[in-house]
Design a protein around this nucleic acid. Structure first.
Lengths: 258, 258
DNA sequence: AAGTGGTCTAGACCACAGA
DNA sequence: CTGTGGTCTAGACCACTTC
């Protein structure tokens, strides 16, 4: 199915469900579910009564765990990367806790400067349990992709992550590296990433300069007004109480009704 | 279906699909789709081979356009709100552009201080086209919900919004109101919200104090490695190039495969 | 072994788009 | 009017959980 639509241009109509079903030798309902998946991923758009079409590449094609490089390209910049330092040592209490390993276990710490069109955008400090990436050196990450390396050299795939975002100001080292004045506004990101088996792979701390980096987020109205009202809930919460939307901003685009 | 599961406790097993189907007098496939919807909304969880269960109320029950109040309650605080000022006047170029109205059209501007457990958390400046909310006064929003007002008094529902997030530092007025030192790190949110008919309803500018407010975001791996590769794309983009995940952080939880 | 969700089939009727 | 997607039906087999 993916191969089939790969041949089409944006805006082209996909053959009808009935036609594709007989072409693939499956029932229409079965083919329908395949299309549903592709619609959910943003590759196709349905128009009732008319047909199914190849979708415009979305500005935010399901922004899930996008890489720095891909994000920058989408914004129209040429991404690059400089490894500043690479060290190895015991995790310590804080990093150990984040990576769910013993504080004594060895951790590889790599600091990279990320640039867009040659302009420094962020300082990224990456911590990885050493035993997960034997042989990895700092230079391996020069202008390269850590996630690709994980996948290709170590066979590690990532499933999910949790990230916190908070404002900060650039300290001396950061303002030097980012080439911004001392105490400039900046965004601090901290992220932990896990494998499908719930093993923590990395803890990353990134400082992005605030004058050049902005998060853009699409909001969607929640499900109907349908709410489950168990006895317990009615006690704890005072009610839905929707007033002005709070900035906790997540887009969920699953193709179903808003 | 919603009524049916409303009677159950968290963790309870829902009757089997076959049973519910005959109970409602529909085919199993039909009932299945109903359940799919509820799973997508986070009310139910399926366990293959075992059954379908009433889900834990999620920490982030589909974080879509959550209100300040609801967000604060979820974080365990008691939200409140103080209207600082309410003025009316021509939109001007900037606000007019954001609200897609003429710069001469009258706009209601309301400044509110948002608190959690009595502690100032944010300063929120709300701009609404006057003609959409005739009779609305600043006091109406004292400890009240703007979205509820829109819905109930004016019959306006909201469909989607777009929001930008960037770091900033508190200026004099902001640091006074937020009770933080001058030039403390803060988050600046700017949001425009639309109705289902694509009419802009509000433009909101919020400054959140950085020491007490943090965004937490769950990341998900994208769709398989399947990518559409049209000729045009191969030219423009240098390739997928996944390296370290960039902080553009959106959770999409639609219950389908990651 | 029985029951569950997951998937598929081969039909059917509907509302709507488009010529 | 024809073709399209949207929805529903009444079965079927599978892999899995649970006892």
């Amino acid at each position: 199915m993916r191969d089939r639509i790969a041949e089409l241009e944006v805006g082209d109509a996909v053959p009808s469900e009935r036609q594709l079903a007989s072409e693939f030798g499956v029932a229409r309902m079965t083919l329908r579910r395949a299309i549903e998946g592709l619609v959910g991923e943003g590759y196709l758009v349905r128009r009732a009564g008319s047909g199914t079409y190849v979708a415009e590449p979305k500005i935010a094609q399901r922004l899930t765990m996008t890489s720095f490089s891909e994000d920058m390209r989408r914004r129209g910049f040429q991404p690059s990367s400089q490894t500043i330092s690479a060290e190895e040592g015991p995790a310590g209490a804080r990093i150990g806790r984040r990576l769910q390993i013993s504080p004594a276990e060895s951790v590889l710490t790599i600091v990279r400067r990320r640039l867009a069109d040659g302009v420094p955008m962020a300082i990224e400090t990456l911590h990885v349990p050493r035993q997960l990436v034997p042989g990895l050196r700092g230079e391996d990450l020069e202008d390269a992709s850590f996630y690709d390396l994980l996948q290709q050299r170590y066979g590690i795939t990532l499933a999910r992550g949790e990230q916190t975002i908070e404002p900060t100001v650039a300290d001396e080292a950061e303002s030097d590296a980012l080439e911004v004045p001392l105490h400039s506004p900046a965004l601090l990101f901290e992220r932990t990433t896990w494998t499908p088996e719930d093993r923590a792979i990395e803890f990353v701390r990134s400082v992005y300069r605030g004058d050049r980096y902005q998060l853009v987020v699409e909001l969607e109205a929640g499900p109907p007004v349908a709410r489950r009202a168990t006895a317990a809930e009615t006690e704890t919460r005072a009610g839905p109480g929707t007033d002005t939307a709070t900035p906790v901003a997540l887009a969920a685009d699953d193709g179903t009704a808003p």
